[in-house]
């Protein structure tokens, strides 16, 4: 029997599920259910989902081995692209709803506010990965080079964690939790096969 992971239906279901957070935000926004500061709520929710999808993407490789489910690879590109998708939305809320497209202010923020600086770094590192995510690019670059390039996800997540750590005022539990999950996923890569 072919693995259910190969089913196109399951893939479609994962795709749909990945859109639930943004749909949810939309519904809550429409019902005026995002609290006293909806813009902050949206920015933060999208930042959270960027991080969660990045970690899910990173979890695929160790999960394939540990769960003996090599077919999980079929989901990695999609999850990575969803991380980028949420990252773009997160960035848009900042550019639009926080800075109102004021380039000077944005530049000043990137230069002055270290949590923005590393957030931007984290995002910029995701861009080449999204661009080269197609099969065409893998062929053009060659598997080795492509894999090498895509290791940029590691610093991207690391900068994302630092971004979160630097933006909280004193309660570091959530960024530390994300950091611990990241460290765990990295450690699993080092474990001998």
């Amino acid at each position: 029997m072919p693995s259910p992971l190969r089913s196109r239906w399951l893939k479609a279901a994962v795709f749909a599920a990945s859109l639930v957070p943004v749909a949810w935000l939309g519904v809550d926004a429409w019902r005026d259910n995002l609290g006293a500061n909806p813009i902050e709520f949206i920015t933060r929710a999208l930042g959270d989902w960027t991080m969660r999808f990045l970690l899910l993407t990173l979890a695929i490789t160790p999960a394939r081995r540990l769960l003996k489910l090599p077919d999980l690879i079929r989901y990695r590109r999609m999850l990575g692209l969803f991380a980028f998708f949420y990252g773009v939305l997160h960035l848009i809320t900042w550019v639009w709803l926080d800075k109102f497209f004021d380039l000077n202010e944005m530049w000043a923020d990137v230069m002055k506010r270290r949590f923005i600086t590393v957030g931007m770094l984290s995002f910029l590192l995701m861009v080449p990965l999204a661009v080269t995510s197609t099969t065409g690019w893998i062929r053009r670059m060659g598997g080795k080079n492509w894999q090498l390039l895509h290791r940029l996800i590691y610093p991207s997540v690391a900068f994302g964690v630092i971004h979160y750590l630097w933006l909280v005022k004193s309660d570091i539990r959530m960024p530390v939790l994300y950091g611990a999950i990241f460290a765990g996923l990295m450690a699993l890569r080092l474990v001998k096969r």
Partner: peptide, 19 residues
């Protein structure tokens, strides 16, 4: 005088869209 985390030049009045 800016704070390292927040620019203090503008603010979001709770309930308003623009700053």
């Amino acid at each position: 005088v800016d704070h390292p985390r927040w620019s203090q030049g503008s603010e979001r009045r709770i309930g308003e869209f623009s700053k």
